[in-house]
């Protein structure tokens, strides 16, 4: 159950990996579609917190191309646009596979729909 909303909020956080650490690349992923509760308030409120290009890119990789290239405007987005956003953000689930840091190549594996975002020993700060 890594929904694309979650993917949009996670960055690599290994020691010294502070740039080119987002978005994580989706690799060997298996995807499932599952319904999620629709909340217009949630979507409108969350649009400003999204990294839009990263979302569009991840969606396309998983075969979802209903999102416009330009970010939606939370004030004027139509219901149809919000429904499409809802589907991409919350109903596309990554079940297995991994997310890979574009910078340091750390592989964050996903199993049972749960990503393992733990750092390895050598990636931890020493203070």
């Amino acid at each position: 159950m890594v929904r694309l909303l979650t993917h949009n909020l996670l960055a690599c956080h290994a020691r010294n990996c502070t740039s080119n650490n987002f978005p994580l690349e989706l690799r060997d992923v298996s995807v499932a579609l599952r319904e999620a509760d629709y909340s217009e308030d949630f979507l409108r409120g969350f649009i400003p917190r999204l990294e839009w290009p990263a979302l569009v890119q991840a969606a396309k990789q998983l075969g979802e191309d209903s999102l416009p290239e330009e970010p939606l405007d939370p004030a004027t987005a139509t219901e149809e646009q919000l429904k499409a956003l809802h589907h991409v953000l919350l109903e596309v689930h990554i079940e297995e596979g991994s997310m890979v840091c574009p910078g340091c190549q750390h592989v964050y594996p996903i199993s049972n729909g749960i990503p393992n975002m733990l750092l390895a020993e050598h990636e931890l700060a020493r203070s």
């Binding site: 159950m1 996670l10 960055a11």
Partner: peptide, 23 residues
């Protein structure tokens, strides 16, 4: 309530992967 469970992840909150604050 599965339709309201955004998800879960494994990590140490003191070494967390959240991209930004204010979430």
């Amino acid at each position: 309530l599965a339709g309201r469970l955004l998800g879960c992840a494994t990590f140490d909150v003191t070494r967390n992967p959240w991209r930004r604050g204010g979430l």
